[in-house]
């Protein structure tokens, strides 16, 4: 095959060929980053390459194990007491002030998962945040997490309306 043939064959395909300039600029605008919330750093880490593998290591870290033991049994399956989840949330708040970025990400995961598990398994809100603040955070987090964690957080959002 000649070099010219090679370039001819690898020329780009024509999918989305009907995309016009106006629509392209509208879609381009979607790519602008949104004002940062604390959860966004964690979501970006989860969505980055290898993010789910990173998460599976994170939940085995001492922060989780000390407070709730087996994190899957506790947080996903619900074999956990409310007081343990509150302890996990408080431990996360302490770790959240750490200078190390990795530790702050672990803290964020522990904080939001403790809130989600309290909602999903006990129907209780263990934070002072408003429901309107909790809902988008947990919804976005559930989209970034691997299963079965995503399902647990999604159940938490469903429990939010009737939670105390």
């Amino acid at each position: 095959m000649s070099q010219a043939d090679s370039f001819q064959q690898s020329f780009p395909d024509d999918s989305f060929a009907d995309l016009n300039e106006r629509s392209a600029l509208r879609l381009l605008r979607l790519g602008l980053s949104q004002p940062n919330r604390p959860i966004d750093a964690l979501i970006e880490r989860l969505l980055a390459p290898g993010g789910h593998d990173w998460f599976r290591k994170v939940i085995l870290s001492p922060t989780f194990k000390t407070c709730v033991g087996d994190p899957v049994a506790a947080l996903v399956s619900g074999r956990v007491m409310l007081v343990q989840l509150t302890a996990l949330k408080e431990a996360a708040k302490s770790l959240g002030a750490d200078r190390d970025r990795e530790n702050r990400l672990i803290a964020r995961a522990a904080y939001d998962l403790s809130i989600a598990a309290a909602l999903a398994h006990h129907g209780r809100i263990i934070t002072g945040q408003k429901r309107s603040e909790i809902l988008p955070v947990l919804t976005d987090l559930s989209e970034a997490l691997p299963e079965p964690w995503a399902g647990m957080v999604l159940r938490a959002t469903e429990a939010l309306d009737r939670a105390e």
């Binding site: 780009p12 395909d13 999918s15 989305f16 381009l28």
Partner: peptide
């Protein structure tokens, strides 16, 4: 440059799809 905007969005659509 305007064509590049269309092209890059088109490529992002392909990759995301």
């Amino acid at each position: 440059d305007r064509a590049f905007a269309v092209s890059i969005v088109r490529e992002a659509l392909r990759q995301a799809q």
